[in-house]
């Protein structure tokens, strides 16, 4: 996910003036909720989610950008923390003392892109961008996919992450035409295509069940390499779009695969995939908007996975990103890929 260039619709909630209360995004409360996450350190849950710390900062920052308050977390503090997770091989761990891993390296690159911090990376590590790019490229496997770490667990999620981060760093082969390529793009896209299933969706590896999250990563990967349109064609887009639109249930919410529960986070994965293939209008936007807003905590801020559940930062960012894609007033526009 990245934020669209340009001024967007502007945060602050001023544009929501005409809406009834239950349709309003409580912008200030969400900002306060995200700021509060970092001060809840005495809670047990805080250290148990340590393995997600960098991702948590990424989700929090993205949410703040969507809310039009990009400066609500201190940039210097974010950068210091980020660099305390950086290893000499160019990989980032989830928190200080954790091994480097693809997921956190990508979150770190996304954060650096968001806070315009690549110069800072170069200052702290000589040829830092290239080193990070090489760490990511080094995780590519002979079959084209990417591992999460040196232990070789692979997943289309990691493949998308790798392409996304390399493109932000400017080290995709297409961005470095005069250099030998760091990764084998044709092998990567061939692997993604092998993950497409008989129902039109995509899974984590060839043969694995179609899942909206994986549809997002596979479409995202093909979109970054510029092959999404030519690979799917109109017929393929119709088929995949039909599968994605079937994720919407009568409650208005979206699920991740057939016969599973609806969940706010799928608002993002399903809708951004539909946007990438030009089929977003197949969603019943009014019903989905109402569902997402039912998951908002209007008193304390934050979004939950389903109405009535506990809020968390993960569902907060995906709820906000979903509302942004739905064109809800008061939020900054988001770029689906």
């Amino acid at each position: 996910m990245s934020l669209a260039a340009g001024p967007g619709r502007g945060g602050g909630g001023g544009a929501q003036g005409q809406l009834p209360d239950e349709m309003k995004v409580v912008v200030e409360k969400h900002v306060a909720y995200i700021q509060s996450l970092d001060t809840r350190r005495e809670e047990l849950e805080y250290h148990l989610t340590e393995h997600l710390r960098i991702s948590g900062i990424y989700w929090g920052l993205t949410a703040l950008h969507l809310l039009g308050h990009p400066d609500a977390l201190p940039r210097d503090g974010v950068l210091d923390f980020l660099f305390s997770c950086l290893h000499a091989d160019g990989g980032f761990g989830a928190a200080p003392g954790h091994d480097p891993h693809m997921l956190y390296t990508v979150s770190s690159v996304q954060i650096l892109a968001m806070v315009d911090g690549f110069d800072e990376l170069e200052k702290r590590m000589k040829d830092g961008k290239l080193k990070v790019a090489k760490y990511i490229a080094g995780l590519q496997q002979p079959n084209g996919t990417f591992a999460g770490d040196e232990w070789g667990e692979t997943d289309t999620r990691f493949l998308y992450c790798a392409l996304n981060a390399l493109s932000l760093l400017g080290f995709l082969p297409s961005q470095q035409a005069d250099q030998p390529p760091l990764i084998d793009v044709p092998a990567a896209t061939a692997y993604v295509k092998a993950c497409q299933n008989f129902d039109g969706g995509f899974g984590t590896e060839p043969g694995a069940e179609s899942h909206s999250g994986q549809v997002f990563t596979c479409c995202g990967a093909l979109s970054i390499t510029g092959e999404l349109d030519s690979y799917l064609g109109e017929e393929g887009k119709d088929r995949l779009g039909a599968w994605l639109s079937e994720r919407q249930l009568p409650s208005g919410g979206l699920n991740g695969r057939p016969e599973k529960l609806v969940d706010v986070c799928y608002s993002w994965w399903v809708m951004s995939s539909m946007a990438m293939i030009g089929r977003l209008h197949w969603i019943d936007k009014a019903k989905l908007t109402a569902f997402i807003l039912q998951c908002q905590d209007p008193e304390e801020g934050g979004f939950a996975d389903r109405p009535g559940d506990m809020v968390d930062v993960f569902h907060t960012v995906f709820g906000l990103a979903g509302l942004s894609l739905l064109g809800h007033p008061g939020l900054v526009e988001v770029d689906p890929a």
Partner: peptide, 15 residues
């Protein structure tokens, strides 16, 4: 752990 110090984002309190 050597994390922490003055940086509030890096200070992680454990059980």
């Amino acid at each position: 752990t050597d994390e922490g110090g003055d940086n509030p984002l890096a200070a992680i309190a454990y059980s």
